[in-house]
Design a protein around this nucleic acid. Structure first.
Lengths: 244, 244
DNA sequence: ATACTTCCGTGCGCAATCACACAGATATAG
DNA sequence: CTATATCTGTGTGATTGCGCACGGAAGTAT
């Protein structure tokens, strides 16, 4: 894995930015900048983790890969979160795979530094656990969403989440890749996307999708989008807003 | 909520049984026996929690209730786990509802005692976090299972999980209730169950289902059952086996 | 014993999704 | 510029699950 340095500030990650100055200072010595390319696998299912990652611009998908090869996303993380929860939860690994969905940068923290800091308690531990709870909400909502909502609703939700993480209306992503994330067929995504395009909510050409109307997308999406967002704000809002 | 005492040992809960003697002694002062009736709501979505629950014989479902009233289960907990994660994760509440799926007993621990003990670190904290990770695996697997597997496969998985928690082949549960758990129609469950009965894997009459052939059920179930079980053992096996 | 409620079987039409297949369009590489 | 690979549109048929509706069977209450 080539390690390229970048010059993003570690404070671009909301969770790091939420730390009290003192805790951040202590931690920042051990934070190391890394850059990720599209499609890069950050860790494989069952693979021992070495680092906890704090994205600044990169977006990461947590995927499950079934025995028959089909895949489904259970959650996404960007500069609002972190990747590698198993390191402080005690498992060292999870049955999911973490893949770069949008190229970009992150900071990484070696296991040892992470665990000793986590063990001190303090705001750091608190934020990590609260984020984990927010992530559980995201996964839970994905579970019910998979059961109860249509591909089109889920596509809207997925696009909105991407916008929130990317802060851009334009995203580089083929129908095929989206289908792998949502755990449906490519054709299903093409039809849903075609429908949304006809209604003027998005437009797309060969691997780039542009969101045109957020309000309408939120209406076309299922409630799941808002529930997860609200819960994140409830759990972490007070920290995030404090330092920004 | 009527509080009935019972005489189960707190050690019937695997997580409590896994604690070192010293930690268990300190905690046991604050453990209070409670009994739950079928269908009882332990906490409502968004409701502030007061206790952490360690089931001994009761089985609890974590359900999501959508705006349109449809429901879907995201996880189950019995004497292998606990209910009320949000109390030590920092959120105090979650968007899910906890319902008694099979009447029985538990021990409860008041928030204050929980949080001070959790804050000490130690094996207690470790086990709670590891269990939380196992629960995340269960929820994640439910998410992909909802997306990718048939009602019949999911029914098999659900029955097996129930057996593991109940240690009984007979369970009191109508098709209607199972449908609410799985987030499908009652008819869908009837058809799947009828099919399994024809194949001799189960039999049922008016609200009681009996499992006849576990091996065959495991084969008819999707991989999700085994994945979750293995991950639980990996995360908590060393603790559980140690004290039993 | 009779009436009522609950539980399960089943049938029908509809919608969503899947699986496979192929064609046209557009980018990319040589 | 041409060949190739990639991306999207579309069609057909099968399958699954949904919504509704009703009827029979097994308990439960009066």
């Amino acid at each position: 894995m080539p390690v390229t340095k970048h010059t993003d500030s570690a404070l671009d990650n909301h969770l790091l930015a939420a730390l009290p100055e003192e805790e951040f200072e202590r931690l920042s010595v051990d934070l190391e900048p890394v850059t990720f390319a599209l499609g890069q696998v950050i860790y494989e299912s069952g693979e021992q983790l070495e680092y906890l990652y704090f994205p600044t611009t990169v977006i990461i998908s947590l995927l499950y890969i079934m025995e028959n090869g089909s895949t489904a996303e259970i959650a996404m993380a960007g500069n609002d979160g972190l990747v590698g929860i198993a390191l402080f939860m005690g498992g060292s690994t999870t049955p999911s795979r973490a893949v770069v969905q949008s190229a970009g940068n992150a900071y990484r923290l070696r296991t040892k530094a992470l665990q000793s800091t986590f063990g001190r308690g303090g705001v750091f531990q608190n934020i990590l656990l609260r984020y984990t709870q927010a992530l559980m909400t995201q996964i839970s909502q994905t579970a019910v969403c998979n059961r109860l909502h249509s591909v089109e609703q889920q596509l809207c939700r997925w696009l909105l989440i991407n916008y929130d993480l990317l802060q851009s209306n334009k995203l580089i992503m083929t129908h095929e890749l989206i289908a792998n994330m949502l755990g449906v067929r490519r054709e299903g995504v093409s039809i849903a996307a075609g429908h949304l395009q006809k209604k003027g909510l998005i437009k797309y050409v060969r691997g780039t999708i542009t969101m045109l109307d957020h309000k309408a997308l939120e209406i076309a999406a299922c409630e799941c989008y808002q529930v997860v967002k609200d819960e994140y704000d409830r759990l972490l809002g007070k920290y995030i807003s404090k330092n920004r």
